[in-house]
Nucleic acid binder design. Structure first.
Lengths: 141, 141
DNA sequence: CCTATCTGCAACTACAGTGGTTTCGATAAC
DNA sequence: GTTATCGAAACCACTGTAGTTGCAGATAGG
């Protein structure tokens, strides 16, 4: 998988929006919670918007909102919005096709990698943003 | 996870060694199958050696060997040898502790990430190098 | 209509990780 | 002793990420 924090921050953003309970939030406010720059947040929000998880509105009083109730958003949804489609990158250079292993290893692997990805997504689908919000709220500060 | 091909190439290397059926192989030969530089291969082999999956021997006629039969090596073993311990990186900067979500989101997430990692590893454990070797051998070229 | 407040987007930088390469010392077989 | 191999360090080019600045465009509200 990719060595970035997109998935984690994406979850953070959606949990924060859920915590606001319908209120619109600006990217600047969200950036204050995540502790980064508003433009970084807008970049991630645009991925979440592409996945139809949030909407944006410009102008004063504008900002960002969830498109559905937090109970209807799973970590799998966020994962699909934020991460690469390949779970494990293949070789950078194609393996030697004249080698009995190199010639077919990628094909053999792809099926297994698909199954791993499926198992990962199934686990992610078990947790919703509402679950997370509840946990966050009930934790000692 | 990290955006590199270590896991894939690690599997390739072990499958190749399994294909040799006990014969020692040099890093140069392996590099020929993977289509890269022998030093790159030795870097990865040293990770596999740290995980006690292969042994090396210097000098003429030296090279690399599996330490156990291919049926006893799973993709999980290789994954643990090659990949980072964190499945999804956390925030680069710590979130705002004064925010009700930022203050506890990482703690709330870590448990879920652990479960995802567990599910991933359980799926990986289902496939052995022997399985892969068999598939590679039976595939049309 | 005007203005303040947002988003949207492009461009640039600093930094870290990856893969590739060269080099050289250590080691073991013959 | 010669040769083949590993081991490790050093360096480079490339890429992706996060952070930052700047500005255009849209919109709410007076």
């Amino acid at each position: 998988m990719s060595a970035n924090s997109r998935f984690t921050v994406g979850i953070h953003i959606l949990t924060l929006l859920a915590h606001g309970d319908g209120e619109t939030m600006t990217s600047e406010y969200i950036a204050g919670s995540v502790n980064t720059n508003p433009v970084v947040i807008r970049r991630l929000l645009s991925l979440l918007r592409d996945a139809k998880l949030v909407t944006s509105q410009g102008g004063p009083g504008g900002g960002w909102q969830l498109t559905r109730p937090p109970r209807g958003i799973t970590l799998r949804d966020i994962y699909l919005a934020m991460e690469e489609s390949t779970i494990f990158p293949m070789h950078t250079n194609p393996p030697n096709p004249r080698c009995p292993v190199g010639g077919t290893i990628q094909e053999a692997l792809s099926g297994h990698f698909d199954e791993v990805r499926l198992a990962l997504e199934q686990q992610l689908a078990k947790t919703t943003v509402a679950d997370l919000l509840e946990e966050v709220k009930s934790m000692p500060r």
